[in-house]
């Protein structure tokens, strides 16, 4: 009888230890996947924010803002995402007299690409398509973001960092009324997991529009 009880106890203890080790191994694997996914997401967000900031800092370059408004009003969808935004800059060739300029228009389009599921939540994801036009030429595709964007918004701000409803009209009336461009976006992880520490990361930046 003692032998049987000993065997039963050994079996229970062995099974428990085995199950605990299995659960820990699975959780550690999940955690490593989560960390890798988070790292990839942050990496993608960092490079996206860098290029879009560099791009937007060219808004209105070499342009006389009292004559021409260097952007078109952002277009928003029902969720508040900016679906389209166009801005302008001029090149300046001072080797000729009078100095020659070429107008460059840069357009962002937010394109729906599907849904991402993480921790049971389904989120609509988009990619940002960038196209460029020189003078009155055709629009040319010049780059796009990874298809991981879940929130994307560009606002034109006044001196109190308040969004302006119709920035083109405001800037036409007063060229100094629009002071900053604010960009905010969120990204989802590239790897869909059942448990994630961060199922979205958010980024925001406020950029000065040079006079």
């Amino acid at each position: 009888m003692i032998l049987i009880l000993d065997n039963i106890a050994a079996f229970i203890i062995g099974s428990t230890i085995f199950l605990v080790l299995m659960a820990m191994q699975m959780r550690t694997t999940e955690m490593n996947i989560d960390q890798t996914s988070t790292y990839m997401m942050k990496n993608q967000a960092a490079s996206f924010s860098t290029w879009i900031e560099e791009d937007l800092l060219n808004l209105g370059e070499h342009m006389d803002k009292s004559v021409t408004t260097p952007f078109a009003n952002p277009v928003y969808d029902q969720h508040g995402n900016t679906t389209s935004f166009t801005f302008y800059q001029d090149t300046l060739n001072t080797t000729v007299v009078p100095a020659d300029t070429v107008r460059i228009a840069t357009r962002y389009n937010l394109a729906f690409v599907g849904y991402s599921t993480s921790t049971g939540d389904s989120t609509a994801v988009y990619k940002l398509e960038r196209s460029v036009r020189y003078q009155t030429g055709p629009w040319q595709d010049e780059g796009e973001s990874v298809p991981l964007i879940s929130v994307f918004r560009i606002d034109m701000l006044d001196m109190n960092a308040q969004p302006i409803a119709d920035p083109v009209a405001a800037m036409t009336a007063d060229p100094t009324s629009v002071r900053n461009t604010r960009i905010r976006f969120a990204m989802v992880p590239p790897i869909e997991t059942s448990r994630a520490t961060l199922n979205k990361i958010f980024y925001g930046s406020t950029l000065l529009i040079p006079n």
Partner: peptide, 17 residues
């Protein structure tokens, strides 16, 4: 990251004064 964004926005508010 978010706090940095808020700091930058506040800095821009002050900068235009």
């Amino acid at each position: 990251e978010m706090a940095g964004s808020v700091a930058l926005e506040t800095m821009e508010i002050i900068r235009v004064r």
